[in-house]
Design a protein around this nucleic acid. Structure first.
Lengths: 189, 189
DNA sequence: CGCGACGTTGATTTGCCTCAACGATTGTGG
DNA sequence: CCACAATCGTTGAGGCAAATCAACGTCGCG
């Protein structure tokens, strides 16, 4: 059970089979349909989600009513509003399944117990967060040094399969421009 | 010794005085003058730096030759290129002291030993990284939903003392626009 | 004192947004 | 399984926020 997650953890820390069993006892699986919300703005984030299959996105709705995508999580990535999860306060974000998605969840009330019983996981999550933080920094770097068109072309080059998977309006908001503008870039060949 | 750091760690995890002593034995202090570089683009990042007094910034130079500021670190914040530090590969960033700055450093070759001897610190750094990651996400949120002028006014409102401390061209690049534009915003009262 | 770094100001340009109208595709209930 | 609506993508005209470029002012420092 939870094989994909155990596999991923193995890349960073070693867990004995007893430890794996203990971990498994504190996890839950969930399935979400396309467009279903895992977290609503104003709600408290319930869990940290590991994507087994499918795709999640975090977004917010700006002052003009447009959805702006903060990040995506595909297979083997974690997704959560860490601030809301840790301090149990209202989130500013939505988390949504962009397609039918299976996740493994660590819920808030299990989290403390988990880290106390398996301190090795502190290391695992430290390393996972380091990677997420670096990804966010690179994102800022690209926003500050490339035009919208350049960001699209780079993204399409790096993740050709992913752009097939999500609607263009989500990709446009992730890359920091409007759907109309993306459409015009694509029209230029 | 290293009182400021011990103080900061106490906010997140408890360390006995033996543990504090062990930690201290693996730290180093450094002083940097205004404009001095702690990390150069293309170099391997040597350490994770905790700011005791002063201010650091991470930046890169874009294709047009302009410096773009990725983040600042003032007192009680950590600064490092985590990717370069962990994998010991060339960094894409510069880290510079924006004023005379004292730091406490954990160097790469001590890092593993430190985490092995004091696994509690995994938790501390996990929580520190969580905060940094959330800050980077909020940064993206603001870039996607506010104009340059709005970002400046918010920043000036939240950190009135900080805008006195750094040259305007650094603030402009942090907020995502040009020094000329910042000058024009300020001229408008 | 003189030079280089930093900040200001104005004229012009541009990347991208806004709005609107119109196809195409998807999903859903009858 | 079709009809129709809702969602999603495309295209074009016009507008605006901010960049670019250039010239000039000012201040701190060797």
């Amino acid at each position: 059970m939870y094989a994909e997650l155990h596999q991923h953890i193995k890349r960073f820390v070693y867990l004995s089979s007893e430890e794996e069993a203990l971990l498994s006892s504190l996890l839950k699986s969930f399935s979400f349909r396309k467009k279903e919300l895992l977290l609503n703005e104003g709600q408290v984030c319930r869990a940290n989600y590991f994507v087994v299959k499918g795709c999640l996105r975090m977004y917010f709705i700006d002052i003009k009513g447009a959805e702006q995508t903060i990040q995506f999580a595909i297979e083997n990535w974690w997704m959560s509003d860490h601030t809301s999860l840790q301090f149990q306060n209202a989130s500013q974000f939505y988390i949504q399944a962009t397609e039918a998605t299976e996740v493994i969840a660590i819920e808030h009330h299990q989290q403390e117990e988990l880290f106390n019983k398996l301190p090795k996981l502190e290391r695992y999550f430290r390393l996972v967060l380091q990677k997420s933080h670096s990804a966010a920094q690179m994102r800022i770097k690209y926003l500050y040094s490339m035009t919208g068109e350049e960001r699209y072309r780079q993204f399409a080059h790096l993740f050709p399969e992913f752009i097939q998977r999500i609607p263009q309006y989500m990709l446009a908001s992730y890359l920091g421009f409007t759907p109309e503008f993306l459409s015009k870039i694509r029209a230029k060949k």
